Simulated assay, not measured.
Amino acid sequence: MANIKAMSLLLAFLVVAMLVSEAFAGTNYYGNNSLKLSQCPGRCKQRCSKARKTEECKFFCNKCCAKCLCVPPGTFANKEVCPCYNNWKTKLGGPKCP
């Protein structure tokens, strides 16, 4: 009888743990593949809002977002949260993504 109660308690704990992990699964706001393609323009508009060449910034940001499905937070830096976005380079070795 005690064995059945222990098994039931363990099963209940596992079910609750699975439900909690499902609830928090969608909270990854950054990182590769964290966006849908339709979210890229809004994130890039925000990312490029303080750029000197805003339209050029948005063009390259959207190109990078379409490939990586990620845009780093803020208007500058923080690229480490999006490795694909951070590591994509131009032919000359400079950063491709703003």
Results as ranks from 00 to 15, higher is better:
residue 5 K to I: 13
residue 5 K to W: 14
residue 5 K to S: 13
residue 7 M to N: 13
residue 7 M to Y: 12
residue 7 M to D: 08
residue 9 L to D: 14
residue 9 L to F: 15
residue 15 V to D: 10
residue 15 V to F: 04
residue 16 V to R: 03
residue 16 V to P: 02
residue 16 V to G: 06
residue 19 L to H: 11
residue 20 V to G: 07
residue 20 V to M: 11
residue 24 F to R: 07
residue 25 A to N: 09
residue 25 A to F: 13
residue 27 T to R: 15
residue 28 N to L: 14
residue 28 N to E: 15
residue 29 Y to G: 14
residue 29 Y to E: 15
residue 30 Y to N: 10
residue 30 Y to K: 07
residue 30 Y to C: 02
residue 32 N to G: 09
residue 32 N to Y: 07
residue 32 N to T: 14
residue 34 S to K: 10
residue 34 S to F: 02
residue 35 L to S: 06
residue 36 K to R: 08
residue 37 L to N: 11
residue 37 L to D: 12
residue 37 L to C: 02
residue 38 S to Q: 13
residue 38 S to W: 09
residue 40 C to S: 06
residue 40 C to H: 10
residue 42 G to C: 01
residue 43 R to H: 07
residue 43 R to N: 07
residue 44 C to W: 00
residue 44 C to F: 03
residue 44 C to Q: 06
residue 45 K to F: 08
residue 45 K to T: 12
residue 48 C to Y: 08
residue 48 C to A: 08
residue 48 C to N: 10
residue 50 K to G: 07
residue 50 K to E: 15
residue 51 A to I: 05
residue 51 A to E: 15
residue 52 R to W: 13
residue 54 T to N: 04
residue 54 T to I: 10
residue 55 E to C: 00
residue 56 E to D: 05
residue 56 E to V: 00
residue 57 C to W: 00
residue 57 C to S: 00
residue 58 K to P: 00
residue 60 F to V: 00
residue 61 C to Q: 00
residue 61 C to F: 03
residue 62 N to Q: 12
residue 62 N to S: 04
residue 63 K to C: 00
residue 63 K to Y: 05
residue 63 K to S: 04
residue 63 K to M: 01
residue 66 A to V: 01
residue 66 A to H: 03
residue 66 A to L: 02
residue 66 A to K: 09
residue 69 L to G: 08
residue 70 C to N: 00
residue 72 P to D: 03
residue 75 T to F: 03
residue 75 T to W: 05
residue 75 T to D: 09
residue 76 F to T: 12
residue 76 F to S: 15
residue 77 A to Y: 08
residue 78 N to V: 07
residue 78 N to D: 09
residue 78 N to C: 02
residue 79 K to P: 00
residue 81 V to M: 11
residue 82 C to I: 13
residue 82 C to T: 09
residue 82 C to E: 11
residue 83 P to T: 11
residue 84 C to F: 04
residue 85 Y to E: 02
residue 85 Y to L: 02
